[in-house]
Design a protein around this nucleic acid. Structure first.
Length: 434
RNA sequence: CGGGGUGUAGCUCAGUAUGGUUAGAGUACCUGGUUUGGGACCAGGGGGCCGAAGGUUCGAGUCCUUUCACCCCGACCA
């Protein structure tokens, strides 16, 4: 992509209402813009990142044997009335009427719709197990949307649902999905923890959350420094009063109080802030029973499906990457999420030598299938450099005044360091880095 | 949904207590020139239904009423 032809409206100042780094930098960097409360447009850079994350999610799920579908976003209200969730979800569901005055809902999640899809189409235990998912827009009319993409009303989420003939098989799939989610978040380059999300009625294995560790996270986690144990703090204390009391205490006193306690493995426990980006849940037959979705078992007896449900907040992940990876200058994308891996910055486009080398490198990297941006704008060096840092290209090739000596620089965004490279070795060096 | 706040140029905001030239600044944008390694400088220029609707007044960005939107704190959040 030529920067001179791109639509990337970057700004020096952030809107006054953006408080989180991800919110500020995604807007300043021209990735997204706000359309209304909790509603965001994805501009070209934001769209690329979103699609990269979506692709990784899809790839790993397909590898694990899941099938992608796409359910209608608008669903009949009657579907929700039958499961009892019309009332349970209340105002969080946005209801609309069509020209015939029939009531519909902008889907906030899709358990009912997915059960309806499978019902009477999957009729034998021989057809099980089955894991269906979609990556589609959701709408939840949050009482108070905030934090940019982190808590929007309209968002992109992957929601998966699995169907089984037995609890044992459902648990097997649940574990498989946990492993698959770990692969996904690892590939994205994120520092994350899997935590128990519910230790009550269903039991420790019933629900697990995946959290990206970041200071701005809304959830407090207790994690063991020695083993993999982790829990959402809400699950550790019995009553709401206890949680409320905890929220009033300072982070430090909380540390002291709980730090004395040891994990069952003997390791030290500590507190971390996390952003929930994934949630997997053992459902049992709650929805299949309510909606009378049955299959015939080995004895020809009808039984409701055993189900599990799996979610990943795809658009929230865009923000999470930045919450965990940024500095005062802007975004620092991980290699898997960077909108462009390499930025070629021509310091002075009026300089014929700089210009032709930039064009040559641009053509060469493209031919090697490297995602590359050529900053060919008629702007000053400092302006383009600040822009590159704000957007967060992992590497920027700076073609400038050192070219007289046959040298160009490679700027490493994360390290914020320049290394000088001979112009004849630049491609080789870049291919090695990325 | 309770409590608080803000709507004036693309963005950040003055101006509103006390109504009165043609509504301002910075930044961004356009033109010309100078500049060319860290968001440059000089000169000129375009850009506003002062959130919307009513009202008071000779006169409203400013006062009154209604309404909408957005933000913050809390409650809520698969």
């Amino acid at each position: 992509m030529r920067r001179s032809r791109a639509f990337i409206p970057t700004t020096k100042e952030a809107p006054s209402d953006a408080t989180l780094p991800s919110h500020q930098f995604l807007i300043r960097g021209g990735f997204i813009n706000q359309q209304g409360a909790g509603l965001y447009n994805f501009m070209p850079l934001g769209k690329i990142v979103l699609e990269k994350i979506r692709a990784i999610v899809k790839e790993e799920l397909d590898k694990a044997g899941c099938c992608e579908v796409q359910l209608s976003f608008v669903t009949p209200l009657s579907l929700w009335e039958r499961s009892g969730r019309s009332e349970a979800m209340g105002k969080e569901m946005l209801r609309i009427s069509d020209r015939h005055e029939n009531s519909f809902v902008l889907s906030p999640t899709n358990e009912e719709a997915m059960v309806e899809l499978v019902k009477n189409r999957v009729t034998s235990y021989k057809d099980l197990p089955l894991n269906l998912y979609q990556i589609n827009t959701k709408f939840r009319d949050e009482a108070r949307p905030r934090y940019g993409l982190m808590r929007g009303r309209e968002f992109l989420m992957k929601d998966g649902y699995s169907f089984h003939a037995s609890t044992e098989d459902m648990v097997r799939e649940f574990d498989l999905m946990e492993a698959t989610y770990k692969k996904i978040f690892t590939r994205l380059g994120l520092d994350f923890r899997v935590v128990a999300a519910d230790s009550g009625a269903i039991g420790g294995e019933g629900s697990k959350e995946f959290h990206v560790l970041a200071d701005s996270g809304e959830d407090t986690l207790v994690v063991c420094e020695a083993c993999e144990y982790g829990a959402n703090i809400e699950t550790i204390f019995e009553s709401e009063e206890e949680v409320d009391a905890l929220n009033e205490k300072s982070y430090e006193s909380l540390q002291e109080e709980k730090i004395a306690e040891k994990c069952s493995c003997g390791g030290k426990l500590s507190f971390k802030k996390g952003i929930e980006v994934g949630h997997i849940f053992q459902l049992g037959d709650k929805y299949s029973s309510a909606l009378e979705a049955h299959f015939n078992d080995e004895n020809g007896k009808p039984r409701p499906f055993e189900m599990a449900t799996f979610g990943i907040g795809v658009s929230r992940l865009v923000a999470s990457v930045i919450e965990q990876n940024h500095d005062e200058s802007g975004c620092i994308w991980t290699k898997a999420t960077a909108p462009y891996m390499v930025n070629i910055l021509i310091s002075n486009i009026k300089d014929e030598a700089q210009n032709s080398l930039g064009e040559a490198l641009y053509a060469e990297l493209q031919s090697q299938h490297v995602e590359v941006m050529l900053d060919d704008r008629k702007e000053r060096f400092g302006f383009k450099m600040k822009d590159a840092e704000l957007i967060g290209f992992p590497y920027t090739i700076v073609i400038g005044k050192e070219l007289e000596n046959g040298q160009v620089q490679i700027f490493d965004r994360r390290a914020k360091e320049n290394i000088s490279v001979n112009k004849d070795e630049i491609i080789e060096k870049i291919m090695e880095l990325i």
